[in-house]
């Protein structure tokens, strides 16, 4: 369980990190918190020629706000985000972070690292998709914005090229009429989810809008707009039960993972259907200020 030898570069500037990756010709790997990467190295499932440590690049360690967005840099630790006001300003982040691994992993693990690793059962990629976050991908040719929903290309595969660094992610701050929900079922706390949901409801307009993102149910986060289903269910006395039946087709379509030893596909569908309707109902009541429990 020892990583194979690798060259180690810890530049102070982003341009040098990019140059290092370019020189490595596909043999380089970026490390920040390393909480997903180091196990992979330890098991020698990956043997990069050079590890490019971006922790020395000061500009990547910031949380900034502008124009209704919070931008989280590539080396910002998950636990730092949990403790920052940003976890209330982007409530879904605050709700999801306690589910990410364990405290001990979040001390070092980064938000951007979790996105770049793109485990299909991970929480933060789903949060990014649900909130329509924008990811800044920087390569030799400069920076480009990639929408979270276009970023995830499959299990542990993303829009990142071998010479790219995910330098930051931008989340919209919560506004009037916004309500959120997050839940997952894992065999043990800290394990990757068997199925999980992130939802965002906005009840400002005449018709509510609702976004449902599932994780652990496919090879990447799956996102659907379910405003119409929510609107239809609103008239019924039991919102959650009404959503259960109205979301049945969407849920069946979203969950396409094969079953595994822990849960069959049908079980995951059932699980996901329950979680999705429950959290959507909660999120909707939160938009109306009718729910006492807050988002922290």
């Amino acid at each position: 369980m020892k990583a194979a030898p690798f060259a180690y570069a810890r530049p102070a500037r982003l341009a040098e990190a990019l140059a290092e990756l370019a020189r490595s010709d596909g043999g380089g790997k970026v490390i920040s918190g390393g909480q997903s990467l180091v196990p992979v190295l330890a098991m020698r499932l990956a043997r990069p020629d050079v590890l490019v440590d971006i922790n020395g690049i000061a500009e990547l360690g910031r949380i900034e706000r502008s124009g209704g967005f919070a931008e989280i840099g590539a080396t910002v630790r998950q636990r730092a985000v949990e403790r920052d006001p940003v976890s209330r300003e982007v409530p879904l982040l605050g709700m999801a972070l306690p589910w990410v691994g364990h405290r001990e992993l979040r001390s070092r693990g980064t938000v951007c690292g979790s996105l770049a690793h793109a485990d299909p059962a991970a929480e933060l990629p789903a949060v990014a998709c649900c909130l329509d976050a924008s990811l800044t991908v920087t390569g030799q040719d400069g920076a480009r914005q990639v929408a979270a929903r276009d970023f995830f290309a499959g299990a542990m595969m993303t829009a990142l090229g071998p010479g790219d660094v995910l330098t930051s992610v931008r989340f919209p701050l919560a506004g009037p009429g916004d309500g959120y929900g997050f839940a997952e079922i894992a065999r043990r706390h800290g394990d990757f989810a068997l199925a999980g949901v992130a939802v965002h409801v906005n009840a400002e307009g005449r018709e509510p809008s609702a976004v449902l993102t599932g994780f652990g149910i496919s090879d990447r986060p799956v996102t659907r707009s379910v405003g119409a289903e929510l609107a239809e269910a609103l008239d019924s006395g039991d919102l959650e039960a009404a959503l259960r039946s109205r979301l049945a087709d969407v849920v069946e379509d979203m969950v396409d993972t094969e079953g595994d030893v822990h849960a069959s596909r049908d079980y995951r569908r059932r699980l996901f259907g329950v979680l999705a309707s429950r959290e959507l109902a909660k999120a909707y009541t939160r938009t109306r200020g009718r729910d006492a429990d807050d988002h922290e």
Partner: peptide
């Protein structure tokens, strides 16, 4: 965040 402690640049072969 890590930016509070600037890390010395390093480059080392395997």
């Amino acid at each position: 965040t890590t930016s509070e402690r600037p890390l010395r640049p390093v480059r080392a072969e395997a």
